[in-house]
Design a protein around this nucleic acid. Sequence first.
DNA 1: GTCTATACACCGATAGAC
DNA 2: GTCTATCGGTGTATAGAC
Lengths: 185, 185
Amino acid sequence: MGPRGSEVWHTMLDGAEAILREEGHAELTSRRIAERIGVKQRLVYYYFHTMDDLVVALFQRLSERELSRLNDALEAEHALREIWDTNVGSTDARLISEFMALANRIDALRAEVVHFIEAARAIEIEAIETALKRRAAKSETSAPALAIIASSVALTLTRERQLGVSLGHEEVLKMVERFFLTVED
Amino acid sequence: MGPRGSEVWHTMLDGAEAILREEGHAELTSRRIAERIGVKQRLVYYYFHTMDDLVVALFQRLSERELSRLNDALEAEHALREIWDTNVGSTDARLISEFMALANRIDALRAEVVHFIEAARAIEIEAIETALKRRAAKSETSAPALAIIASSVALTLTRERQLGVSLGHEEVLKMVERFFLTVED
DNA sequence: GTCTATACACCGATAGAC
DNA sequence: GTCTATCGGTGTATAGAC
């Protein structure tokens, strides 16, 4: 396995990520990656033993960045709102759906996905608990339940917006806004 | 295009659906379908001009069945609970994720997915409105918002259960149960 | 309606030179 | 570390016989 973390290594993952976002996993081949970043196909197999390894590494890199981002948000004043806005505003639903389909097939990727979901949820639960405590409001509300609801809805809104569906979106956004007003300023 | 709705036509879609559920779209090829149902590959192209056509037809068949099921549930006494239980209990999250990824690539499929989401949501909104009216409770609650929340959460719970994640599931199920007790006896 | 046979493209992966 | 060259396999799709 080639030097993990090297410049070329990152360049290859950059190319792979762009292909996955723009064209989907059917086009995510060693040849397309090499063509895109201007090297020969053989080199991809120098840095990643198999294409599955490359996909797992790509998800790991993305997962680490996202978890780091979530941890940073935890320090912000309005952590909840920041997490929500980012999830709804800059999540790439297509990228996620491609990874989900790939995880059905690649065991190592599925393990990474599970780890990410659990780690992200733990952070989000913490953000919600902090917000609820600060307002000392509705202590009977379950933070884990809210965490699942919020992340589920955020993903759905993003996916549907990208598909071109908007039925009910306005109403749910209003409801979320009302919730924020009760727990954060 | 071969006889749509004929016996062989359905057999082919049955095989395709099984492959998609069990092995994913990477294995959904004309050769594998033919092998699985015991015909020659050429025949697949007699009934479906292209593999994309087959995928679209498969989703349409599934979509029609699901919408019909939802409409039937609307007639039941506890429509909401029935819809919820089916969504959480017998939805195949893997099948959905495979279709989602395919929809990123196949325009005609994306159009079918959009139609399904909108039709299903309309039915679910109706079920929620009926339940809310019957109890004359919380008339300020938005049915479209609840519809999005419920379907989002149901899909997440199903997907995560199949992945092996359970963090927060118990809490959200309790919350749903409490909601049912307030609108449906 | 179902078959045999095949054209053609592209894939993952490896051998081995420089 | 990057390359040329290549192998074996599989995919979509079509020509055309029966």
